[in-house]
């Protein structure tokens, strides 16, 4: 289990995360929902150890949490002139897995002999996910894993998340698509302006969806659409 207590993150005077408390249990998928700029990516980076923070993150497992964490950034970055295979080799070697059978780990059937930078957005995301899988991590932080992927890959990623859950891994993810959160997550946390506003269990996710709709532009949009089109500007 991973326990996050009183986590705060600021950039100078600008506070991005405030007093975050979360419990991420093994065999559970936790979803983070929030508007753009709510602090989801910052929270993920703090959890991964890519950003400094104040507060506590405790890992009840052996070894350093960072070394068993797989982080999928919202937009994975690939080094220029590195093939898909070499990227996966790099990911495996970084975790000391020198004997990894890269071809066998190619669950998405990616063209591994081509430069990763030339892959489409969806293929790059799949490659990054494959990298996390071959590292055999314990914690999977997935920032927008469904962004830019096609329907077939969407199904496979859902399957992967379900399998990770079965394998007793810890998964935390974000998505702007409620249906994917609904399908994959056991708990959903609503992050707003750097604070966890609400946490609900499976079956009650629409409470957060409703709350988020309330924050939206619905009323202003209605007003705009109802405007008299013949009126001069």
């Amino acid at each position: 289990m991973i326990t996050i207590e009183a986590l705060n993150k600021s950039y100078g005077e600008h506070t991005v995360l405030q007093n975050i408390h979360l419990e991420l249990k093994r065999g559970e998928v936790n979803g983070i929902a929030g508007e753009n700029g709510a602090g989801k990516t910052t929270l993920f980076k703090c959890l991964a150890g890519l950003k400094k923070y104040t507060g506590t993150i405790r890992y009840e497992g052996s070894g350093l949490l960072k070394n068993v964490t797989g982080f999928l950034p919202a937009t994975p970055y690939f080094l220029s002139r590195l093939t898909g295979k070499e990227y996966l080799q790099l990911m495996a070697h970084a975790r000391g897995r020198y004997g990894t059978d890269i071809e066998a780990g190619n669950v998405f059937d990616l063209p591994l002999e081509e430069y990763a930078e030339n892959y489409s957005t969806g293929m790059q995301k799949k490659l990054a996910i494959t990298g996390l899988l071959i590292q055999q991590n314990e914690l999977f932080i997935l920032d927008e894993p469904f962004n830019g992927v096609d329907i077939h890959s969407n199904i496979i990623i859902r399957e992967i998340i379900a399998r990770l859950k079965q394998a007793n891994k810890i998964v935390v993810m974000s998505s702007h698509i409620f249906s994917t959160l609904n399908d994959s997550c056991d708990h959903l946390h609503h992050l707003k302006e750097g604070r966890i506003q609400k946490t609900v269990g499976k079956g009650r996710f629409e409470e957060i969806e409703t709350a988020m709709k309330g924050e939206g532009i619905g009323a202003r949009l209605d007003q705009l659409l109802a405007a008299d089109p013949s009126a001069t500007v």
Binding site: R81, L82, L90
Partner: peptide, 22 residues
């Protein structure tokens, strides 16, 4: 070019692998 340039350094990416190709 999208054509992958073979390199003797590809087993241990990345500095020499990418540098060689550039």
């Amino acid at each position: 070019s999208a054509r992958v340039i073979p390199t003797p350094f590809s087993k241990q990416p990345f500095e020499f692998t990418t540098g060689f190709r550039r």
